[in-house]
Design a protein around this nucleic acid. Structure first.
Lengths: 350, 350
DNA sequence: CGCAGGCTTGTAACCGCTTACAGAAACCGC
DNA sequence: GCGGTTTCTGTAAGCGGTTACAAGCCTGCG
């Protein structure tokens, strides 16, 4: 026999009082204690105070695990993210937390370290009510195979998933806005530094840029980059050297844009007077470089919050309608907006 | 098509197979299924394969909640943090995750929105095995009162807690090192942009700065900031305008330092020639701005990892020694180091 | 052949809570 | 005073696992 319990009230340091202890001390049944604590059923005032006194005296706190087992609801949602760094990660979590805490939901964080950890995904069954999954680099089939069955899920910026709600960033619209802005500033020959060909975001940004350029009557030449500063530097140098003709550069992310801009400056090309530059992502650095970089911004926190809100809705839906397919996955699109700064001209110079 | 299920087994889409379903399909008892899955007891090879086949066929995944209830171990730890911003928190979480995932622990994130949410703390009972708590703005007594009894805990950079392990940053030493460095570079009139008065880190950094300035024979005037870039900007502008006399600025965190530095640059004040600047935290952005910011570095990720490791040790300890006080809380101190970069002068100009 | 003792396996009692159901008590109008 | 409500309370059966204990099956040995 381990914890010696004084036979009316236990709970010294280690052991916690259970609902039975409270019931015993209050001289009522466990059902009544439960009723008092969940407060939906009728209990007489005297019963309520007796239970509350006993609970206070014992320092009783309900056991979340036990409760979730019998209610089939954990009050937590799983957040599955790739190995992220920096602001993006914290902003995303911040947004998720904002929404989750107003709904009194906990966030159980799981990071997928380059591919490994997919098995921890299924292990989440019984520990969470639903999942927000962000796994942009993962094959959707692999992902689908590892999803715990019967758990509500919302995907964030993943390759399209059948039958599940997917929140994506409207890369096309963002890129188009940037290119339109460049054209409105007078650009006729725009160079687009794209991301790697295999990257979905990169493809969409390129497509948006091409569409907007065509519409605005500007030429758009594409040079494939790799999202790193060096590819931007290389393009900036070619433009400065005159090997590549351009009056504006639109890079598929900010680091490449910054690389290009720095190279231009270094070679005495005036930004934005001679060549305008715009990026994508609006990383914190974008407004700290000089001249400050015009970029396409995504409200990351809002995206996180939206994902949690959608998931909460699906969980509630599944709860009252456990039979049917979770309401069909009409994807939802997050529209980015352009942050105009100093590397572009606001108006047409003509 | 959905996987056709043999009619002995339920679990179409929504419902999950339970251990009983597996036992029935395999024609064995639930105890055997459990043994196969936990693999410590002896089971005959044939039994093993039968159970594994049945489980695979049903897509069985153990229910973490139920398991944790009967084992009195959840496999998750609660992480309680103040309202989070930026790199600091992503790095902290990153370090915690690194440690937690090698130990196969989940992280249940709880954010304390300015004081509220303390009640969610006790609600963690039964959902986690232990707690890492960071609440620098909280009165230790209030905090102690809200800690779930009998749950292992490690405190991070909090006011001293009796009987619990506390990991703290040696803010005094870090701030003193920065101020000594500024003084060694020739600074005589240093302005310190502090954090909010109620914040413990802010208080310690200020105290360290004051001590070092006094020792070095430099004057130190303190302006209270709020850890956000804008407070730095404001101070930078006052210094540039001459309203505030200074030949060096030491900010209690990097964002304020960057704000100050940018403001100085914008107004044509040379950094570090006219005014040197140093920050605290060494966020990744610090070395990306130009000139690169001198800062007091803390290996934040390592600190997070350390906290989790300590907590895991305490949990294990409590498990095999449930009686005694959790091993006495010998506080552990993290000593920061100075990263000298371009916003300060290495040597005395005199 | 009988039996001690080691492997396997099954039965059933938990873990701490919720809740359907039924019984008790109080109240009502007649 | 009685049946019918309505309101409160208790009993006990889960939720989905783990595991102590007992029982069954072998095996080897005297």
């Amino acid at each position: 026999m381990s914890p010696a319990r004084p036979d009316s009230a236990p709970a010294t340091r280690g052991a916690h009082a259970t609902i039975h202890d409270v019931a015993r001390v209050a001289g009522v049944s466990v059902a009544s204690v439960s009723r008092v604590f969940n407060g939906r059923d009728h209990v007489r005032a005297e019963m309520r105070t007796r239970v509350e006194d006993a609970a206070a005296q014992l320092g009783y706190v309900p056991h979340a695990g036990a409760r979730s087992l019998s209610m089939a609801r954990t009050g937590a949602i799983g957040v599955v993210l790739p190995d992220l760094h920096g602001e993006f990660f914290s902003e995303l979590l911040r947004g998720m937390d904002r929404e989750a805490s107003t709904r009194r939901l906990g966030l159980l964080l799981t990071v997928l370290h380059d591919g490994r950890g997919l098995d921890t995904l299924t292990a989440l069954r019984g520990q969470v009510d639903g999942l927000v999954v962000m796994a942009p680099e993962l094959d959707p089939d692999v992902l689908a195979r590892h999803m715990p069955r019967g758990l509500a899920a919302v995907f964030l910026a993943c390759a399209p998933q059948v039958g599940s709600l997917n929140l994506r960033i409207d890369n096309r619209a963002g890129a188009a806005a940037a290119v339109r802005h460049l054209a409105a500033g007078g650009a006729k020959r725009i160079v687009h530094i794209s991301g790697p060909a295999g990257n979905l975001d990169a493809q969409e940004r390129r497509a948006g840029a091409e569409a907007a350029a065509a519409e605005a009557g500007a030429t758009l030449s594409v040079i494939e980059g790799d999202f790193l500063e060096a590819s931007g530097t290389m393009v900036g140098e070619r433009v400065a050297a005159g090997t590549l003709e351009a009056d504006a550069i639109f890079a598929a992310n900010d680091m490449m844009a910054i690389g290009a801009m720095m190279a231009l400056k270094r070679h005495g090309v005036a930004v934005p007077e001679q060549v305008a530059v715009a990026g994508f992502d609006d990383i914190p650095l974008a407004r700290l470089v000089s001249p400050a970089l015009t970029s396409v911004a995504i409200d990351i926190a809002a995206m996180g919050a939206r994902a949690v809100a959608q998931l909460a809705a699906r969980i509630a839906g599944a709860r009252e309608q456990p039979s049917g397919d979770a309401s069909t996955g009409a994807d939802e699109v997050i529209v980015p907006h352009l942050m105009v700064r100093e590397t572009t001209r606001e108006t047409d110079r003509g």
